[in-house]
Amino acid sequence: MTCLVAETEELAQARRLVFLALLIAVAVTVHTVESLLPTPVPWLRLGLSNVITVIALYLYGGRAAWSVSLMRVGLGALLLGRLFSPGFWLALSGCLVATSAMVLLYRWAGPRMSPIGISAAGAAGHAFGQILAARLLVVQHAAIWQIFPLFLLFTIGSGVLTGWVAAMVLEQIAKHPIFQKGKIEKVCDETP
């Protein structure tokens, strides 16, 4: 068996697809489990599934992050039977703003930001998106913005927390040979 460059490319593509599928599966699971846990206030969740979005962003870039976050919201809503319910629109709006914030910040700042900062920005975007949707769809008056600062403060905390988890996971993943370009080629070379 020979190992051509083209094949390596194909392999990398397939690996990427499999990994992305895996990440989406994990994100949907985490999202669903987290939705089922009791919370003191309906909106206050840690947003652990954002860990996966951040990982996808760092491993495969903006498009991957978009796929993970959108699939998470869509599949999560399907699983919980909340598709097109007010809660779904809140989640979708939060996810759109959060992912935009993270992807843009990542693109602009790149290595100058660690997953923690990206995640904090995403969490803030998530809070904003949710309140925006709530203002438009559920509550319909401006008073709702009065809770935004407190919500934002909480969400920055949870963003740092999830970013920290993402940073640790990414550190572990990065040690694996398949994420180290040189090593993979070496592995390939050694297979006759």
């Binding site: 930001m113 660690s114 997953p115 923690i116 900062g117 904090a120 600062p149 934002l152 920055i156």
Partner: peptide, 18 residues
Amino acid sequence: YMTVGDWLVITVLIVFAV
């Protein structure tokens, strides 16, 4: 893990919230 950029972003967000 945190870089200067992280601190900057988080500080701006916290200042905004407060």
